[in-house]
Amino acid sequence: MSQDTQEQISAEIAAIAVQAGPDERQPRVDYAPYRSSVLRHPTKDPRHVDPETIERWAPCFSHRDVHPLEADLTIGAHAGINSQVSGEPIGERITVTGRVLDGDGRPVAGQLVEVWQANAAGRYVHKNEQHPAPLDPNFTGVGRCLTDADGGYHFTTIKPGPYPWGNHRNAWRPAHIHFSLFGNQFTERLITQMYFPGDPLFALDPIYQAITDQRARDALLASYDHDMTVPNHSMGYRWDIVLSGRDRTWTEPEEADR
């Protein structure tokens, strides 16, 4: 485990932030404050190509692949490892819903969404997990669903906790849910993380801060939606996702693209 301090990491984050351009919509893959990235990023810019036929299509998933109950992470039984359990997971029950859109603003319908997350204590069910927080026998933290005709998705889960990691001394990740998404085209494939509003760890986290533009970072924040909150049952969060597999100048779209 690294002995770099949060102060060192924060100073590096700040030094990069002042050089950052306003149009950087994606994380920098070359982002040394996230130590594991140092040897795992390409040094060359990606090569620009016109998509070929196979890249203009995306894999299909169907109700053969995904059972509707897999969208409820609080029932425990679907993920295989907890098939005996019938209890409720501990934590703040939430629903997370939103729409998946492509780069032209069209709904991504009937497409696969996969999620995974820590439990309420900040612990993952994973063999390499070392955080000595309790496992929850009623929670695997894994879900799937297919988007509806309008691109909508919906999960019921519990709010994950923040957890410590080895990037530097006293490093903690803001609470998040991992999302894996497919679009209408192969090039729209996305894996990302959804965060919760107001987390005090945002400024300290090199993974979140690797997105150098505040507006782009904000796109990963769910919003609390009281209309989605179910009385005597669960809190509600809303988060929309836009998948774009195309290079574009985001600030000034060409007339022909409108």
Binding site: P27, G105, W116, E129, P253
Partner: peptide, 16 residues
């Protein structure tokens, strides 16, 4: 065009 959602690392815990 709506602004695209940024990616983030898959992290170490996707195995489940």
């Amino acid at each position: 065009h709506p602004l695209p959602t940024p990616g983030q690392t898959i992290g170490p815990f996707y195995g489940q």
